[in-house]
C-alpha cells in the first residue's frame, strides 16, 4: 500500500513519484475525504430505501399495513406447492408469465431505443461539432426535446399521435405514407413503435450532448494532421474520432441503458395498460400501488435491479469499459 502509484503515469515519471510515499499517503487521505460527502449522501438517500424494498420483497407486506409485514422467505419470487392430488403448482414472480412478458418488452425497448439514440446522437454531435453559421441556435434547438418535462412531452405526443385529430396521421395521410388513420397508441402493432418514436425523439439530445462534450476534448491538431495526410473523412471517423470519443460514448450509453431499462413515466402516460408496452417498472408500480400486492411489487423491483445489474456487468465486461483510466 505504500507504493500506490498515481493513475496513468508511466516510465520515469511514475518511478520518480513512487518514492514519495508521504505524498501518496496524503493523496489517499485526501481522496477518501473527497469521496466521503458523495458516499454519505448516497448511503442515506439510496441505501435505506433500497434495503427497505429488498426486505419487503421477502415479506407479505401490504401497503395498508407495512409495519405488520411478516417474513415469508422466497415465496414472492418462487413458491412450489404440491397439491394433495400430486400436482405441482408454481407460483410467484419467476413463474408469472406477465412478469416475463414485461422483461422481454423492457429489454426489447431498451436495446432498440438506445441503439437509435446512439446513432442519431452521434450524427447530431458530429454536426454540432462542425463549424457553421447558426450553430448556437441549432444547439439550443436540439435541446428542446430534452428540456420539455416528460409528462408534458408524453401528453404532447399522445395528442399528436391521436388517431382522429392527431397531426402525425394528418401528415402521413397527406404524404401518402398510410391509407387510413392509424390508432398509434391503441393498436398492439404500433404501440411499441409509438413509444420508441417518442423516447428516441426525447433523449437523443442527451446522447448528442454527452458525445459532443467528448468530441470537443479531442485535440484539434489530430484532425489537422489527418487532413494534411489526406486521410478520407470516413476513415478519420472510424480510426480517430470513434476511438477517442469511446470513453464518453460508453458512459453515455450505460446511463441511457439504465434509464431505458427502468422506463416508466413515458409508457405510463402514453400507453398505460397496453400489454405490448408494459415494462418491468410499470408492472412493479401496478403491484406496489394499484394492487394490494406491495411485497410482490417489491420483489419485482428487486428482480428488475438484479436484471439490470447483470446486464450492466455483461456490458462492462464485453464492452471493456475501462475503470482504471489510461488508454
Amino acid at each position: 500500500m505504500t507504493t500506490v502509484p498515481m493513475s496513468g503515469p508511466s516510465g520515469a515519471a511514475a518511478a520518480d513519484l513512487t518514492g514519495r510515499s508521504d505524498l501518496q499517503r496524503q493523496r489517499l487521505r485526501a481522496a477518501w475525504m473527497f469521496l466521503a460527502p458523495m458516499l454519505i449522501a448516497l448511503a442515506i438517500v439510496a441505501g435505506w430505501p433500497l434495503v427497505r424494498t429488498i426486505y419487503f420483497s421477502f415479506t407479505n407486506a401490504s401497503l395498508n399495513n407495512l409495519s405488520g409485514a411478516e417474513w415469508i422467505g422466497f415465496d414472492n419470487y418462487l413458491q412450489i406447492r404440491t397439491l394433495s392430488s400430486g400436482r405441482v403448482l408454481y407460483r410467484g414472480l419467476l413463474a408469472d408469465p406477465a412478469w416475463w412478458a414485461a422483461v422481454w418488452n423492457t429489454i426489447r425497448f431498451a436495446v432498440l431505443s438506445v441503439a437509435f439514440e446512439t446513432v442519431f446522437g452521434m450524427i447530431v454531435a458530429l454536426v454540432l461539432n462542425a463549424n457553421f453559421r447558426g450553430r448556437a441556435l441549432v444547439r439550443a434547438a436540439i435541446l428542446i426535446p430534452w428540456a420539455i418535462p416528460t409528462i408534458v412531452s408524453a401528453k404532447m405526443w399522445q395528442w399528436m399521435l391521436n388517431d382522429q385529430f392527431g397531426i402525425i396521421n394528418e401528415i402521413a395521410l397527406n404524404l401518402g405514407l398510410i391509407s387510413q388513420k392509424i390508432a398509434w397508441t391503441a393498436s398492439p402493432d404500433t404501440a411499441m413503435i409509438a413509444v420508441l418514436i417518442v423516447d428516441v425523439w426525447k433523449t437523443t439530445p442527451f446522447m448528442a450532448l454527452l458525445i459532443l462534450a467528448g468530441l470537443q476534448m479531442i485535440p484539434g491538431d489530430i484532425y489537422e494532421a489527418a487532413k494534411i495526410d489526406g486521410v478520407h473523412p470516413i476513415k478519420v471517423f472510424w480510426k480517430v474520432t470513434l476511438p477517442l470519443v469511446r470513453p464518453a460514448l460508453m458512459v453515455a450509453v450505460i446511463f441511457r441503458m439504465l434509464d431505458a431499462l427502468r422506463i416508466f413515466d413515458l409508457i405510463y402516460v402514453l400507453t398505460p395498460n397496453n400489454a405490448q408496452t408494459k415494462t418491468m417498472s410499470v408492472l412493479a408500480r401496478e403491484n406496489l400501488f394499484d394492487f394490494d400486492k406491495f411485497a410482490y411489487g417489491s420483489a419485482a423491483s428487486t428482480m428488475l435491479f438484479l436484471i439490470i445489474a447483470v446486464i450492466t456487468i455483461v456490458y462492462v465486461v464485453v464492452g471493456r469499459v475501462n475503470f482504471e483510466g489510461g488508454r
Binding site: M6, S7, P49
Partner: peptide
C-alpha cells in the same frame, strides 16, 4: 480518477448500482 486505491472499480460500480433501482421502488422508503 486520479488516485489509485483498492476497491476503486467496486466503488464506481456501487455508485452506478444506485441508478439501477427503479425510482418507483424507492418511493415508499424515501
Amino acid at each position: 480518477s486520479r488516485v489509485r486505491f483498492r476497491g476503486r472499480s467496486l466503488l464506481l460500480l456501487t455508485v452506478l448500482a444506485v441508478s439501477m433501482f427503479p425510482q418507483i421502488a424507492v418511493l415508499a422508503g424515501l
